[in-house]
Simulated assay, not measured.
Amino acid sequence: MALDAGAIVGTWVWEIPSDRFTADERFAEAFGLDPDSCRNGIELAEVTKVIHPDDIALVNDAIAEALAHGGAYRCQYRVAHGAGFRCLEASGKVELAADGSPVRFPGVLIDIDERRAVEAERDRALVLLEGFTAAVPGVVYAKDRDGRMLVANRGTTELIGKVLFWQSIQSPLPTPNGPARCPLTAHPPNVRNRASG
């Protein structure tokens, strides 16, 4: 069912001792490989040769780490696709023999092109919002429904008397009588009223 949903675009199994990598037709299509060869089994080197040159070291390091310790593997990279590259995420698990040696590595391939595009658009919107907020004179800020500061300009910083760092905004501090609150929202009510008025 998940394969038909479009998020997962293929599955694979790598038999490590024999270096036999088998994959389904959708995986073969995503990597531009021959489906029959993938179904019958190829060497891992055949699969990795279509990975973007800037990403291959990252992929090799992630594979080596998973092989050394077993367990979960997750890596994002680009593969040649048409005239450009396609962003994929591989997620799998290295299975170990009783002696601790890696023997089998099954996994799934996930298309993350759309997610990357959405994240890029979100990042562009945040940069625009931060630029707009910084350019507006006076006191400008926005909070979420829980009272956590999301964005604020220099006027807000000067009024509250605290330097704004995204790290402190995104890491709320606990309060003794209620939910976690951002350090910037722990000011007295009269300061809040002046800031919003």
Rank of each mutant, 00 (worst) to 15 (best):
T11A: 15
V9E: 07
E25D: 10
G10M: 13
F21C: 10
A23S: 09
V9D: 03
T22Q: 07
I8F: 13
P17M: 11
S18K: 12
D19E: 11
S37V: 02
E25I: 00
G10E: 13
T11G: 15
L33E: 08
A30I: 05
D36Q: 06
S37T: 03
P17R: 10
W12F: 15
D24H: 11
T22L: 04
C38Q: 03
T11N: 14
I8S: 10
A30F: 06
W14E: 05
F31Q: 03
V13R: 12
R20C: 14
N40K: 06
F31Y: 06
W12T: 02
S37P: 01
W14A: 08
F31E: 01
A23T: 05
L33D: 04
L33Y: 03
S18F: 11
E29A: 15
I16C: 11
C38L: 07
I8Y: 11
R20G: 02
F31A: 07
C38E: 02
F27R: 10
D24T: 07
D19A: 12
F21N: 10
D36V: 00
E25N: 04
F27N: 04
V9R: 10
D19V: 12
R26K: 14
D19G: 12
F21M: 13
S37L: 06
F31D: 02
F21G: 05
F31H: 08
R20F: 08
P17I: 10
D24S: 10
T11I: 14
I16P: 08
I8W: 11
A23P: 07
D36G: 00
T22C: 09
D36K: 02
S37D: 09
E25R: 01
C38V: 03
I16F: 12
P35F: 03
G32I: 01
L33K: 05
D19I: 13
G32Y: 01
A28P: 04
V9Q: 07
D34T: 01
A30D: 01
F27I: 08
V13H: 09
P35M: 00
V9W: 03
D24E: 09
E29L: 06
F21S: 07
F27P: 00
E15R: 15
D36H: 03
W14F: 09
D34E: 06
V9Y: 05
I8K: 07
N40M: 04
I16K: 09
G10K: 14
R26H: 13
N40L: 02
F21L: 13
E15N: 15
I8M: 13
D36W: 02
A23N: 06
G32E: 00
E29S: 13
E29V: 05
I16Y: 09
D34H: 02
G10N: 14
D19K: 11
D19N: 15
I16R: 06
T11C: 15
F21K: 09
W12R: 05
R39F: 00
P17F: 12
R20S: 10
E25S: 08
W14L: 11
G32R: 00
F27C: 05
G10A: 13
A28C: 04
F27D: 02
D34L: 05
